[in-house]
């Protein structure tokens, strides 16, 4: 029943498209006409995206002096040096751990909270507001707040462990805990946005599907996995892509909380690029790192579109 009008619509659209093509082909100014529309955006992209990209690629093949001028051509030597350095490999490794942990934790917790908050219970509005509140907190404020929490002598965690006579945890000075601290802070920051988007998407799943499932006697967990998850998969795809890219680009929290330390345990790629360029003035090295990061993000985005998107139910 439903299929017939849809297919006929597609057919008529096809017809009109081919008709348009025919008309366009007759027009001799076709090329210039399209450039008229594409031009402005191409110009802007060229100026602000492609030019910097190629310039970065160019710089990455040289050594740069104190002022960032390219002086000695070295070809791919910068890449070889970086890939063979344990320090850079460590950065790559911690970045991957961080991205993975942040994405998985943000989405599972966001989903859990959104699912809870979508239940019609008295006072649920309060919880919805609470869960989405971190969206309104700026990175700087969040970082300062968590720095207070982690302070080894006057922080909240230190006071609790003192009161319970436990050995205090060195949150920001022990390499193992520092990563955990940064992950906790990032997930806390991201949760509000993820929660809100997922809640909206869960709310928009048609009630009739759940009613039908209940008639058939499906359990609530079965309803979640068989109805909610597939129905919100486009949103999940969107949120996961955004979270992964955001996590790769994470900068503010790291700069304010750990500065990449201790012993480079939280020295993620983007922070490294910043430090090498604007602290150490080594523009060649940071350009090389930037190109490597671009390749990595492009690779992840490609994978997401190739494999994940097929599983998405639009």
């Amino acid at each position: 029943m439903l299929k017939t009008p849809a297919t006929s619509e597609v057919a008529s659209e096809k017809k009109s498209v081919s008709k348009k093509k025919f008309v366009f082909r007759l027009n001799a100014n076709d090329k210039y006409f399209s450039m008229f529309f594409l031009g402005p955006s191409l110009l802007l992209l060229g100026l602000f995206v492609f030019y910097p990209l190629f310039k970065t690629l160019y710089i990455s093949m040289f050594l740069t002096d104190t002022f960032g001028n390219t002086t000695v051509f070295t070809g791919l030597q910068n890449y070889v040096n970086l890939i063979s350095s344990a320090d850079f490999m460590n950065s790559l490794f911690v970045t991957l751990i961080y991205v993975l942990a942040v994405t998985v934790l943000t989405i599972t917790m966001g989903l859990l909270l959104a699912n809870l908050a979508s239940k019609k219970l008295p006072g649920i509005g309060i919880f919805r507001t609470l869960y989405s509140m971190t969206m309104g907190v700026s990175v700087a404020v969040a970082a300062i707040f968590w720095l207070f929490m982690f302070n080894p002598s006057t922080g909240f965690f230190a006071l609790v462990s003192n009161a319970l006579k436990l050995t205090p945890i060195n949150w920001l000075t022990d390499p193992k805990n520092a990563m955990l601290a940064v992950i906790i802070t990032t997930v806390w920051m991201n949760l509000g946005f993820t929660f809100l988007i997922l809640l909206g998407s869960i709310e928009s799943v048609p009630r009739s599907l759940y009613e039908a499932a209940e008639v058939e006697g499906a359990s609530s967990s079965r309803q979640f996995f068989k109805i909610t998850l597939p129905m919100i998969s486009p949103t999940l795809f969107f949120v996961s892509t955004i979270t992964i890219i955001d996590a790769f680009k994470s900068f503010g929290l790291i700069d304010l909380i750990t500065k990449g330390g201790p012993t480079n345990a939280t020295n993620m790629l983007v922070y490294r690029i910043y430090k090498d360029a604007f602290y150490s003035g080594n523009y060649a090295k940071s350009s090389t790192e930037a190109i490597i990061l671009t390749v990595i993000i492009a690779f992840f985005t490609l994978i997401q579109f190739k494999f994940l998107e097929k599983k998405v139910n639009y």
Binding site: L147, N151, S153, T154, L172, T173, K259, P262
Partner: peptide, 17 residues
């Protein structure tokens, strides 16, 4: 010995301590 770490926040934490 207590370790306050590195950077500006370490300096501030150390002074506060």
């Amino acid at each position: 010995f207590i370790d306050y770490g590195s950077g500006a926040s370490a300096g501030a934490n150390q002074t506060a301590g």
